[in-house]
Design a binder for these strands. Sequence first.
DNA 1: AATTAAAGTTTAATTGTTTTACTAACAAAC
DNA 2: GTTTGTTAGTAAAACAATTAAACTTTAATT
Lengths: 341, 341
Amino acid sequence: MMVTIKDIAKATGVSPSTVSRVLADNPRISEDTKKKVRKTMRELGYHPNIHARNLVAKSSKAIGVILPSSADKALQNPFFPEVLRGIGSVTHEREYAMVLSSAQNGEEIMSEVRRMVFGRYVDGLILLYSRINDPVTEFLNEQDFPYVIVGKPYENINTVTHVDNDNFTAGKEITKYLIDQGHEYIAFIGGSRELFVTVDREAGYEAALKEAGLPNIEEQKLHTEFLKSGGREAVESILALEKRPTAIVVSDDLISLGVLSRLEQSGVNVPEDISVVSFNNVYLSEITRPALTTIDIHIYELGAQSAKALIEKAENKSEPAKRIIIPHDIIYRDSVSKRES
Amino acid sequence: MMVTIKDIAKATGVSPSTVSRVLADNPRISEDTKKKVRKTMRELGYHPNIHARNLVAKSSKAIGVILPSSADKALQNPFFPEVLRGIGSVTHEREYAMVLSSAQNGEEIMSEVRRMVFGRYVDGLILLYSRINDPVTEFLNEQDFPYVIVGKPYENINTVTHVDNDNFTAGKEITKYLIDQGHEYIAFIGGSRELFVTVDREAGYEAALKEAGLPNIEEQKLHTEFLKSGGREAVESILALEKRPTAIVVSDDLISLGVLSRLEQSGVNVPEDISVVSFNNVYLSEITRPALTTIDIHIYELGAQSAKALIEKAENKSEPAKRIIIPHDIIYRDSVSKRES
DNA sequence: AATTAAAGTTTAATTGTTTTACTAACAAAC
DNA sequence: GTTTGTTAGTAAAACAATTAAACTTTAATT
């Protein structure tokens, strides 16, 4: 019922191993024979059985992608589909499959990772999150299993391959841009301080303030649970500030959405009264009103590079750990105004 | 290096087949022996090799998910992560793997599907799109390969299993709700008319108008390329209408985002001047200003049910084709106002 | 003419599991 | 005391590929 290598062999009048070698385009086989074999393959509609191949090759030509636990709504961030697209572009090109973790919480993630690793279901893993004291990375280290992290690892930063942006510099640049436009009171709204993205971007923001000789005021730095109410209370705190800021650096486009809407609600005009900038440049930032000036972190590239690095690592265990920094750039839109100081 | 069934057999002093049967919890093996075998497994850290198993089982305990071609930005719709979550919940529970297509265009999708099907990489496929004259579905029919469609199939609607909402009724209900609030001039903004979702929801909208004896005016029904400018021009056309509508039915939360922002830009207050309702209830609809009254279509369930149906189909080829309709309900928020008529 | 080399194929082992067919031991039935 | 049946297990044959080693040819070298 299923066409096997043996059928092709018999039909062509060669041995199975010859067929296998044709498949691998082995130079030991003459062009003549190859042509004949390939013809039979086409005629009988042959397709190699992946499981048989994987069994002997001890690899699966597949990589796994582990999403953060989906309990929180972070998954709805357009960031994820976009990294997946990036990863997909290289898995497709290299004929790898892309297996998605389907776990909902830490417990489940761990059991899924176990299955993938022990069952040799995948040749490597991409982690789309990074947590402190993560049992998953601990396990992977223990097993010496190839993995790469998108973002900044909490531990072993020099021995685990990761693909990240220079979030510090990005934060500094965008803040500097605000300062150059004449802003002096600049607030910061970030996601959870447990995330490196937040911390790094915030540090950049602080560095820019410092460099410009502006005060780093504790009260104008707010943190909000990602998505939960989308940074609305953060805005409230800011508006209640004695010295109201004229600009806000928001650490994620998605949070900006809530920020923008809460600002509008209070009759604060963006950018006339308050300027807003943020990070990621997901498509949303184009359709908000006003369109957001934001840092394009090239999410797609983040995914593509991590997949590339992972596959290299998986195919050659001795490949050294790498840090890959994806460049960013500022997309100027309409959420920033010049201010006479 | 890798612990196999044979190692366990030798260490326990039984035959490999016995070990295999213990794995399958076969009643032919005495509890005593099972206990001993399992103990050795734990001690040696045994994990079955998936490829070997799949090879003889002629199945892969994996399902593939085909996304629409990612060229357009539709992928950034939070709809997708959410269906994936739903699918993942059941694949995880049943110990299936979830393989994501990574193709960017029709051509690539087709080659990827071929690889998955012929290589027996997956036992079935979930299509997250439905196109007219789709070579993929044609191919799958030809190969008699299990698949289910999320949404409404363009062809063979009675022979292909699909999971959908009753978009007609949903459209009708939400429109009726608007009418009940006293609205008489209600516009419609939809995505591409090539999508059944749009068509169905629009038909429901029209049915509600008709039932209420309201005129079905061609000019107040607009269509916009999904995401492209997010329905802003559609709003412009509506505002230019001689008799300006007091409410708009938008066929997707994401489009509403653009609609809302364009409305605000023109100084039109929502809901005071114009009410807006839409569909999907992605998390975005909570954080817009005002929060959107929208139809919750239970995206997660859409995914979960399709995975369940697919696995059933894959495990039992004679399973009949099903149509599964996921119920919807209206989430009342702040984007609709009552109007004295 | 004998030896060596190179090219092209084949034979057979291997990968880790499942499964079919068989066996040994013992009890119950005739 | 043979037959039949049950129980608990084993041996060996798939499954569909890859690959190292062995084996033919044919061509080139001595």
